[in-house]
Amino acid sequence: MIDTDDVLRDTTRRTGVEHVVNVQLSTEFGDFLAAGYRDHDRGEEQMALVYGDVRGDDVLTRLHSECLTGDAFRSRHCECGEQLSAALRVIVSEGRGVLVYLRGHEGRGIGLLDKLRAMRLQAEGLDTVEANLALGLPDDARDYRAAAGILHDLGVRSVRLLSNNPRKRDALHQNGIAVSERVPLLIPPREENLFYQVTKRERLGHLLPHLPVDLSRTADTSSTTG
């Protein structure tokens, strides 16, 4: 006989995450299974929203980095909240998929208070990369090992990744999750976040072909607080 506790301990040892609880969660987008995890490597509590049977290959998947200002307060200085809503809608329309909500990723991993400090520097004219570096912080400190561990636990073998960021694709590959396709998640820019989105394309390699090819930096420095 197999001891369930032994299986759980082995899974935690291999992935770094412990599956703690499942509960049905009704949202404006649809009814999901909310799967709660504890990330023992980084000390974070994580959650995946699961729609349908996601065991197997080619599962539509979004790795969504926590963004309090965008997700909860609907700040217009980034497109995070709109991406979150769009991802949940497309997962439901697909009939099958996962959104892994990654806590500890605020400000691309620098934390909420440093993100707010970086936003103040952006309001003074720096772009989002320059602001992080000016604070002595990396331009992107996010880690996706926990996300891969959650997907492994859910039985996901390969994903169709809802993302414009090649780093997420590479991180999943490095952690044993195959990416069969990258599915763009393009949000029309607003005046307040156009420069921010262009900076992600030009400085961080995000694939955002819907944005203008040329953008006058001086014309948009008032819109750089995302």
Rank of each mutant, 00 (worst) to 15 (best):
E66S: 13
R13W: 08
T12G: 07
R14M: 14
V7D: 13
T128Y: 01
D71C: 01
A48T: 11
M47V: 15
T15V: 11
V54H: 05
T12P: 01
D58I: 07
L25W: 15
D41K: 05
V17G: 06
D71F: 00
G97E: 00
Q122M: 08
T61R: 12
V54W: 04
A131N: 01
V23F: 01
Q83V: 10
A134N: 05
I2W: 13
G36S: 12
D58Y: 08
T12V: 13
D114M: 07
R117P: 12
G56S: 15
T4I: 14
R117V: 07
V7H: 08
F29P: 07
E106F: 10
Y37S: 09
H77W: 04
Y37D: 07
L68E: 14
Y51T: 03
N22C: 13
V17R: 09
V7A: 14
R55D: 10
D39F: 08
A134L: 04
R117Y: 05
V54T: 06
H64D: 01
R96F: 02
D5R: 14
G107T: 09
D114E: 13
V129R: 02
E45F: 15
R13V: 08
R89W: 00
R55E: 11
G97R: 00
Q83W: 12
T12F: 04
T69V: 05
L8D: 07
C67Q: 13
D41F: 07
L49I: 00
V7Q: 10
E79T: 03
A72G: 13
R120L: 06
R62H: 02
G104C: 06
E82D: 08
Q46Y: 10
S75W: 14
Q24L: 14
L49M: 02
T15L: 06
G111D: 05
G81P: 04
T15E: 10
L84Q: 14
D39P: 05
E124N: 13
E44Y: 08
H19P: 03
F29T: 12
E79V: 04
L133T: 14
L99C: 06
D127T: 01
E28W: 00
G97W: 02
G43F: 15
E106K: 09
S75H: 10
T11W: 14
H64G: 01
V92R: 02
C78T: 01
L84M: 15
